[in-house]
Design a protein around this nucleic acid. Structure first.
Length: 584
RNA sequence: GCCCCCGUAGCUCAACUGGAUAGAGCGAUAGACUUCUAAUCUGUAGGUUGCAGGUUCGAGUCCUGCCGGGGGUGCCA
């Protein structure tokens, strides 16, 4: 069924429009209805029934209630005030002049205070199935993003320890955002910024050194800001096993240097593996060190100073962020001569912009809140549009086990790592849970719930719909006693008329606008809602309609329908990063 | 103190950025497997949208002021 060659090409052109590359379905319905309204307005004006008032942007929405049609406009309500006329009367004038186009619209009516409601014709609604077949994995995609180049930078954890559960949330969020934006026509790159320079790395090396000395009987205090986790001891133990006391007599700071260079690449590699384990793969791993080695930090600061955006005071270099709405100026280079994190971040963002991205999206933990304005100010100081940088702040994750909070302490290093979580609940459940809530509210993650194979757990609900369809299709192939089922004829689809079928078709048609919405509003978590709605409608369809029946035409039509549903589920699950199982 | 985010059903969230009777899931409760997977479906109960004003044909959504929760406010990262 993968090829479309047996389809009636003329029919296809008629039903999905002559523009073969049309983004189709719902977006197309919207455009066509807007056009119909514009024409109706023009007619009304030429008949002298309405003054030539600019209508402004015609807004179309999906009414909440089915009986209000598939699309609705409040246009008449909007202009009634300005014209000082009854909105219903205006609505009647416009609605009465909408050209009949039975291929698209079956009914136009005025309702409520003056809404104009449009009901799509069943034939039009069914076309989505041809579109899905034609577009395959690309179904739901559009060019809403206009091929803008976008970089999404996320996780970017310091390579000084294993990822924690919060990182998992950023990973799920960033990856899904990148995916959905890509599907909506943006050119997206996923980037991980490696902080392999500076204080945190130093603390990492010192912590290992302290444990190393401890193991070799030279009791040694964990330094200020050091890492207390067990994993540091494990690293130190491994070094002792492999190299013995080779580093014992080195001066402390030299030993720290050696340990940093030995161990941070390993840690980074294990971070990469963890992320890959949950299906998150980055296009670029960008090293902070490279910024320094290529002199970009110096260049950036030099340019700012030359432009009078930065100045020296009390032995430090300051950026005039107050000129761009910050509360106080910020230090770029400490009086010790050591650059701040802010300095390299400025160079980093300059580098990003120079790489030609139209837009750069950073996903940061909510604890970096106070940093947003500063960074945007820096963007302006460098002469870039502050809006070119978008920061998404992710709230933290609180872990629960059967309703009880899991106690974690950063001080003692007693934390649940992302690896442990993935091992316990699996990547699918983890990614789905991470994406369930808006990024700006804290997430309560219940480990036991995520493991439950029960109705409380929505992951399985969606996956089950996919597995059920796969099972139906296997069964249908047996029943058809052929390797492949025949493609449906266009007229077969007219048999799809039950309410459950039409609801399913309508929902399928919404995917493009859902993808567009999630991409434009940067709300990838809303994909889960669509997935659940589609799955729910499928399960209801399953209750009401048998796919495999003696009626061959009906069976062909319904097979075509559930194949479309399966394709849509695959696409959405793919964007969320959850697998689509053939059976469960 | 000042700045940002959030207050919607018992719980977790929607409500397409100002529209029609505020919707889902979970939980509670009553039902449905001789039929393509019951990890499913169907019914019922559950609301003064934190409070008080304001803006207008219309407010959960916008403006002001309170109340409550979270975060930020380093020559830390």
């Amino acid at each position: 069924m993968q090829n479309a060659t047996s389809l009636d090409v003329k029919y296809l052109q008629k039903v999905i429009g002559t523009n073969a590359r049309s983004t189709g379905g719902d977006g197309m319905a919207r455009d066509e209805i807007v056009e119909l309204i514009e024409d109706a307005l023009e007619t009304a004006v030429s008949e002298g029934l309405l003054p030539p008032t600019p209508a402004g942007k015609i807004e179309l929405e999906h009414p909440r209630r089915r009986e209000h049609g598939d699309w609705s406009t409040n246009l008449a309500l909007g202009v009634a005030g300005r014209l000082d006329r009854n909105p219903r009367e205006i609505a009647e004038i416009i609605a009465g002049r909408v050209a009949e186009s039975p291929d698209v619209i079956s009914r136009v009516e005025v309702a409520g205070p003056g809404f104009i409601n449009f009901h799509l014709s069943p034939a039009y609604i069914r076309n989505v199935l041809f579109e899905i077949e034609e577009m395959g994995d690309r179904y739901g995609s559009s060019d809403a993003g206009g091929r803008q180049r976008v970089q999404v930078e996320f996780v970017s954890a310091n390579p000084v320890g294993p990822l924690h559960v919060g990182h998992g949330r950023w990973a799920a969020l960033g990856d899904a955002l990148a995916g959905v934006m890509s599907h909506a026509g943006f050119l997206v790159e996923r980037e991980f910024y490696v902080n392999d320079y500076g204080t945190q790395l130093r603390n990492f090396g010192r912590s290992i050194s302290a444990r190393y000395m401890e193991l070799l009987g030279r009791g040694c205090e964990l330094p200020d800001g050091g890492y207390a986790g067990e994993y540091i001891k494990d690293i130190a133990r491994r070094i002792v096993d492999e190299c013995g006391d080779e580093f014992l007599d080195l001066p402390e700071e030299d030993r720290v240097d050696v340990f940093i260079e030995m161990e941070y690449p390993r840690m980074l590699e294990s971070i990469r593996e963890t992320l890959e384990g949950m299906g998150v793969v980055f296009d670029v791993w960008f090293r902070e060190r490279d910024l320094y080695q290529r002199g970009e930090v110096g260049e950036s600061l030099g340019a700012l100073e030359r432009d009078g955006k930065a100045y020296r005071e009390e032995g430090a270099l300051w950026l005039r962020t107050t000129e761009y709405g910050d509360e106080k100026d910020r230090v770029l280079v400490r009086s010790s001569g050591e650059p701040t994190y802010f300095a390299s971040d400025i160079a980093y963002h300059r580098d990003k912009m120079e790489r030609g991205f139209d837009r750069v999206i950073d996903i940061w933990g909510a604890d970096h809140h106070g940093y947003v304005n500063r960074m945007k100010a820096a963007m302006e100081a460098m002469g870039y549009d502050r809006e070119a940088l978008e920061v998404i702040l992710g709230q933290l994750v609180k872990l629960f086990r059967s309703g009880k909070p899991v106690v974690m302490s950063k001080r003692t290093g007693d934390v649940v790592t992302l690896d442990e979580l993935l091992g316990e609940v699996g990547a699918d459940a983890a990614r789905y849970f991470f994406l369930q809530r808006s990024h700006d509210s804290p997430l309560d993650f219940d480990i036991e719930l995520a493991k439950k194979e029960s109705p409380e757990n929505p992951v399985y609900y969606v996956q089950y719909a996919h597995a059920r369809i796969s099972s139906i299709l296997r069964y249908a192939r047996e029943a058809a006693a052929e390797a492949e089922l025949p493609d449906p004829l266009p007229e077969d689809l007219e048999l799809l008329e039950a309410e459950a079928e039409m609801d399913l078709l309508r929902k399928l048609g919404e995917l493009e606008e859902v993808v567009e919405f999630c991409a434009m509003k940067r709300v990838p978590h809303r994909l889960t809602g669509y997935a659940e709605e589609l799955a729910a409608l499928f399960h209801a369809f399953y209750r009401d309609c048998r796919v495999v029946t003696d009626d061959e035409r009906l069976m062909r039509a319904r097979v075509f329908l559930v194949q479309g549903v399966r394709q849509a589920l695959r696409i959405v699950l793919g964007l969320i990063g959850v697998s689509a199982p053939e059976q469960m």
